[in-house]
Amino acid sequence: MKIKILVFGQLSEIINASELALLAINNTDELNKKLFELYPKLNEIKFTMAVNKKNIHENTPLNHEDVVALLPPFSGG
């Protein structure tokens, strides 16, 4: 099972890519855990997560080829 992850704003600096793929992830809690393991600095930023173009507020199951976006808030104007 493969999940595609799109990364926005300063999160892409932490991950050092604007896109990545992870295998064997069953839900968004597992995904968060894996991301924080791989990129501990992500813990410092509160971001919103969108699964297949809908932002989520609780653990959400993930399926093969789902696309998850990680979006930080911007304040500039």
């Binding site: 930023i45 509160k46 919103t48 507020h57 304040s75 500039g76 104007g77």
Partner: peptide, 21 residues
């Protein structure tokens, strides 16, 4: 508040003054 329910961590947020635009 449905987009960002929790306020940002002030130590990690950037403004245009610092980060540029």
């Amino acid at each position: 508040r449905d987009l960002f329910p929790q306020p940002p961590n002030p130590l990690s947020t950037l403004s245009c003054n610092e980060a540029g635009v």
